[in-house]
């Protein structure tokens, strides 16, 4: 072969370039620890996604410490859940799969980006250090309304984050002269115990009950309400726990009078 010296120089430079590129990528994997989506998530039968313990219920669960898991179903043309909230300073493992066609789960403006192929579970662990608001979009064509497939991811300050859920059972009406109760069930999605205060506001009065909930448990709080104290008429109430809020209306009706108004109990979940 008759190769010019300059060409040999360029050949050597090209090899340096190629090896340099591979070295950089390897550094990214070893140094900052960037890891590829791989086969760790395993396979799944798309028609039996609901039977998979990861996807029985989609959304955020607390694993322990600062570790969380988020199960997401990407389907034509939405994400379930479409609003995800995790705390800053957390390490979050996403499990994403699809019951229909190929999608992606891509958090805009970050390096969190995976294909979602039916039959496979995409698993990726991400560290969220700082609070922030991100959009989520599907960047793989998935049918006519592909462009409407989106969601949001909120990374909230650690002290604003909880997995507390509140559900309130309250009667719609009570006869004057009687007592009734408004029952608040508070559940704690975190693995840690939760000490908090449940508050009922009704008829201009405020009642506080301290409550302690075991990690991953739930507790009921009972507020006794005296109809006479409220007086006849409609009374709006609100139960608040740990930032969760539920409200409704309680009607106090004349015990002798049968034609009661049909005011309803609350299910207005904030």
């Amino acid at each position: 072969m008759n190769i010019h010296t300059y060409e040999k120089v360029w050949l050597a430079a090209s090899m340096v370039l190629i090896v340099g590129f591979i070295a950089t990528i390897t550094y990214g994997a070893v140094g900052p620890g960037v890891s590829m989506i791989s086969d760790d998530g395993g396979s799944i039968d798309p028609s039996e996604i609901n039977d998979d313990e990861r996807f029985e219920e989609t959304g955020v669960t607390h694993v322990g410490g600062n570790e969380y898991e988020v199960a997401v179903l990407a389907q034509a043309w939405s994400y379930s859940p479409d609003e995800i909230e995790v705390p800053a300073g957390s390490e979050v493992t996403f499990y994403v799969t699809s019951p229909d066609v190929t999608h992606s789960f891509s958090v805009v403006g970050t390096n969190v980006n995976t294909m979602v192929v039916p039959g496979q579970v995409s698993e990726m662990t991400v560290e969220f250090d700082e609070p922030g608001e991100y959009g989520i979009l599907c960047n793989e064509y998935c049918g006519e309304y592909h462009h409407t497939m989106e969601g949001t991811l909120s990374v909230v300050p650690e002290d604003e984050f909880d997995l507390t859920e509140l559900s309130v059972e309250a009667p719609g009406e009570v006869e004057s002269g009687n007592e009734t109760t408004i029952n608040a069930t508070v559940s704690d999605g975190m693995q840690t115990d939760l000490e908090t205060t449940a508050t009922l506001e009704i008829g201009g009065e405020q009642y506080d009950e301290d409550v302690t909930i075991d990690g991953a448990g739930s507790e009921s709080v009972e507020f006794a309400v005296d109809a006479d104290q409220l007086g006849e008429g409609d009374h709006d109430w609100t139960v608040t726990v740990d930032g969760e809020e539920e409200s409704g209306t309680l009607s106090v009706v004349d015990g002798a009078n049968d034609d009661s108004g049909d005011s309803d109990g609350g299910d207005d979940d904030a």
Partner: peptide
């Protein structure tokens, strides 16, 4: 351009997938 793209655009681009360390716990 390679150095810029890798170290500024990529590694500076917010949260990144760091593996599946939580798998075992999960």
């Amino acid at each position: 351009l390679w150095l810029f793209m890798y170290f500024v655009e990529f590694l500076g681009n917010g949260p990144t997938v760091v593996g599946s360390l939580a798998t075992v716990v999960g």
